[in-house]
């Protein structure tokens, strides 16, 4: 099951040789690693703040009861959804369009 169907092989060879394919893969890969790095860094930072400076996190914001920890926690929830939206928008938009162009031009 893991061998590709034979009728694809000619097309696959053309794609592999096309510089637009290499560029697409490189761009998408770079973008996904960048967002991964941001996610890991922000999350590690959040956890480290909790681990290293609990008094800071517990400090109320603006004289009320709501603490820095609650605000940052809410920002983490919203930010996580937002970073997914950024990737899906670009991948389903720009990258998919480039892939579709590439496939159309090579199939014709």
């Amino acid at each position: 099951m893991s061998t590709p169907a034979p009728d694809h092989s000619a097309l696959e060879a053309r794609i592999a040789a096309d510089p637009r394919y290499a560029a697409l893969v490189r761009d998408r890969q770079r973008f996904s690693w960048l967002l991964t790095a941001i996610t890991v860094a922000v999350y590690s930072g959040f956890i480290s703040l909790i681990a290293f400076d609990k008094p800071l996190m517990a400090r109320p914001i603006g004289g009320g009861t709501v603490s820095l920890a609650v605000v940052l926690g809410a920002a983490m929830l919203i930010g996580t959804v937002a970073i997914c939206a950024v990737y899906v928008r670009r991948a389903n938009g720009e990258y998919d369009a480039r892939l579709a162009d590439l496939l159309t031009s090579l199939r014709s």
């Binding site: 996904s32 967002l35 991964t36 926690g73 983490m76 996580t80 997914c84 990737y87």
Partner: peptide
């Protein structure tokens, strides 16, 4: 909430990688 954020933050990783 620390638990909850950890559960959620795995999803971008699934998406990107």
């Amino acid at each position: 909430l620390i638990y909850a954020i950890g559960f959620l933050v795995g999803w971008p990783i699934v998406l990107f990688l």
